[in-house]
Design a protein around this nucleic acid. Structure first.
Lengths: 208, 208
DNA sequence: GTCTATAGGTTGATAGAC
DNA sequence: GTCTATCAACCTATAGAC
């Protein structure tokens, strides 16, 4: 075989469906759901409105497709291993991955709140596919518990609560700028990491 | 004087403006911004659409009024003192206040994301009025720093980062159920509090 | 699969009586 | 201050040609 890349099914780029999906996400992020009209999406995607209705049943279906697509990285993120050699590096990597997922995902989750039906549909999708922060939190919790047994992490903290704390810090970091208009009060990833390391370090009393 | 309550200016209840504002918030929370039409608001408030346009310049102005109203409790919350006798009680009280504010506020912040103009207007309002989590975080940070000097809190943690951690946990608790459709992975207020107390407790090494 | 054209239905906003 | 009646604009969705 030659230098041919991985073989695919549909047509690689220029596929109208993909154009429509990414145009929809772009409009969603830049102008908001309220301004997300089929007209505007068609214009951006360089297709006609009719095309949209060929690929998707209706506006609702289009939005759902964009939502599911935006949440898909979470499934992958939940499955890949992440445990590294050193504690700090592992936590840092986890945080980076969470924030990378959250950046676009927050927009999607937020947009779904604009309509009760959308919210309900997305909630169902997340429940059915076991999506949410819990998988990652459980995984990280298990890792921390293991580190506890190794004596690397102090034994008198609840691992899952630590994991929740880490994720919630990432979530707020990913949300605040967009939602509040500034980042005042937000701790940096490094600051949060420093704090977590201080918290997790075994102490003389606790190690006993 | 008789049993007359406090004197007021406008008509006490039944004031059309108030009715409209609370009807708007109700529709916002139940059906979402997308379904928030002047028709629906008028119906719920028991007034005509014309009345809405008498009290507010347009739909945009109505929404802004509701947003500012929903964020108002934050200003109060930022000003009241909160330092109590014991550390745990103080933190618990702070968390409760933050979550009480956040419960309705998250809906408002989320709704503002539906339109770029709304988001921009609300962001400006928050910047102009110095609103956001930073005031509370700074206050709590100062309190923790004081407790450090008193030896009640271990000295080798950054107080503001601890405060951020506490608030971010509240923020995620207030957001997740609405946005994800379930609360899996979310640590309870008690669990978070336990973890914080463990973190803050002075250690033999650190106290030195 | 993609287009054009258009029907059908909402919605925000105004005018003017009371 | 509140109402009724109405308009103009816009948007979703469909039909049918290519």
């Amino acid at each position: 075989m030659t230098t041919a890349p991985a073989p695919r099914r549909g047509r690689p780029p220029s596929g109208g469906r993909e154009e429509i999906l990414s145009a929809t996400l772009a409009v969603l992020r830049e102008r908001g759901v309220a301004k997300l009209t089929t007209r505007e999406v068609a214009r951006r995607a360089g297709v006609s409105e009719g095309s949209i209705y060929y690929h998707f049943t209706d506006r609702f279906g289009l939005l759902l497709a964009v939502f599911e697509r935006g949440l898909r990285p979470l499934a992958d993120l939940n499955q890949r291993g992440f445990a590294g050699p050193d504690l700090r590096g592992t936590l840092a990597g986890f945080m980076a991955a969470v924030e990378a997922f959250l950046d676009p995902a927050v927009d999607v989750l937020t947009a779904a709140q604009s309509d009760a039906d959308l919210r309900e549909a997305l909630g169902t999708h997340m429940r059915d596919n076991d999506l949410g922060p819990h998988r990652g939190i459980t995984m990280l919790g298990a890792y921390l518990e293991q580190q506890q047994r190794l004596g690397v992490v102090r034994a008198d903290v609840d691992p899952e609560t630590v994991a929740y704390t880490l994720v919630s810090g990432c979530f707020m970091r990913a949300s605040q700028e967009r939602m509040v208009g500034h980042t005042l009060g937000v701790a940096s990833r490094e600051q949060q990491l420093d704090l977590l390391m201080t918290l997790l370090a075994p102490t003389e009393d606790a190690v006993k």
